[in-house]
Amino acid sequence: MGVVFERPKSLTQQKFHYCPGCHHGIIHRLVAEVLDELGLQDRTIAIASVGCSVFAYDYFDVDAIQAAHGRAPAVATGVKRSRPESIVFTYQGDGDLASIGAAEIIHAAARGENITVIFVNNAIYGMTGGQMAPTTLVGQETTTSPQGRNPKNAGYPIRMSEMLATLPGASYIARTSVHDPKHVRETKKAIKEAFQVQVEGKGFSLVEVLSACPTNWHMTPVESLEWIKNEMIAYYPLGKFKSAEEAK
């Protein structure tokens, strides 16, 4: 009987440190499966950011760089410009990408950098213990918005994918979710398309993945899945905002 399930080659043997119900593990695996399927492991350089996924460099079995908070797209730019033959991706959370790194992600997209960005949006700062993120929903309680995010004080959550899709330099922008198996499969498809865009030299690609943080949301993993489905997707609609074909 043949092997029906195994660890992707592009993941190391290292055990994930993520909390129960956290989706980083699934998303790591999807990225690794895609790298395996496209035969990219040997020429891939991963850029880990600051956040819960800071140790991504330990989990992916590819050459890797740990970047300063928010700066991964700039680091990726330096890598890709000096080694255009490499496949370069950043793995960033919503605090990293949408707050402190907003300038870097916008300009990497505007330049049409031929890199792939995996953007994990869980609407909260996970690593530092559940503070309000730029993507925290209105009314959502966090340790720094204990009465719920009040837009009069804290403004509104940013829809990064929609914003980035307006840039002519961006070639592929999609938002997916991993709250059920169907959406996990769709996420993998999007990640694969994003890497293919890079392989074909078509420019900047980004997949925003809505994901759960049960620990800081103070929910059970199952409640978290419901919350993504009912609350997050309502504000952050899924879909492809830009595909390589329509990119100019």
Binding site: I45, I47, I65, A67, A68, R71, A74, V75, A76, T77, G78, V79, K80, R81, S82, R83, S86, E104
Partner: peptide
């Protein structure tokens, strides 16, 4: 400087 960090890494 972070682009320098990336290029120097390679």
């Amino acid at each position: 400087i972070n682009m320098v960090y990336g290029a120097a890494s390679t």
